[in-house]
Simulated assay, not measured.
Amino acid sequence: MRKGAIFYNRTGFFTLLNREVHRFMKVYIQTILAPLLSNILFLGIFGGILQSRDIGLEGVGYLQFLVPGLVTMGAIFASFQNPSFSIVAQKFQNTIQDLNSYPISDTEKTLAYVLGGAFRGVLVGVLTYVATIFFVGYTIEYPILFFVAIFAISCIFASIGLITGLYLNNFEKMNFVLAIVITPLTFLGGVFFEISKLEGVLSLSRFLNPIYPLVNLSRYMYLGASEGNILIHTGIAGVLLVGAFAFAWYTLKNGVGIKVD
Rank of each mutant, 00 (worst) to 15 (best):
residue 1 M to D: 15
residue 4 G to R: 07
residue 4 G to A: 12
residue 7 F to R: 04
residue 10 R to S: 14
residue 12 G to Q: 12
residue 15 T to E: 05
residue 20 E to T: 12
residue 21 V to P: 02
residue 21 V to W: 08
residue 22 H to G: 05
residue 25 M to N: 02
residue 25 M to V: 12
residue 34 A to E: 14
residue 36 L to I: 08
residue 36 L to T: 12
residue 38 S to R: 11
residue 46 F to R: 00
residue 57 L to Q: 08
residue 61 G to C: 07
residue 68 P to H: 00
residue 70 L to V: 08
residue 70 L to D: 10
residue 92 F to W: 11
residue 95 T to C: 03
residue 99 L to I: 08
residue 101 S to R: 09
residue 102 Y to N: 08
residue 102 Y to V: 08
residue 117 G to C: 03
residue 124 V to N: 11
residue 131 A to Q: 14
residue 133 I to D: 09
residue 136 V to N: 08
residue 137 G to I: 07
residue 142 Y to Q: 07
residue 144 I to L: 14
residue 147 F to M: 11
residue 151 F to D: 11
residue 152 A to I: 14
residue 155 C to I: 03
residue 164 T to L: 09
residue 167 Y to G: 02
residue 180 I to W: 15
residue 185 L to P: 00
residue 192 F to Q: 02
residue 192 F to Y: 01
residue 194 E to Y: 00
residue 196 S to Q: 13
residue 197 K to C: 12
residue 197 K to L: 08
residue 202 L to N: 09
residue 215 V to L: 05
residue 219 R to T: 02
residue 220 Y to N: 07
residue 220 Y to R: 11
residue 220 Y to M: 11
residue 222 Y to T: 13
residue 226 S to V: 09
residue 228 G to W: 06
residue 228 G to E: 03
residue 230 I to R: 06
residue 233 H to A: 07
residue 233 H to S: 06
residue 234 T to G: 02
residue 238 G to Y: 03
residue 238 G to V: 03
residue 247 F to N: 01
residue 260 V to H: 13
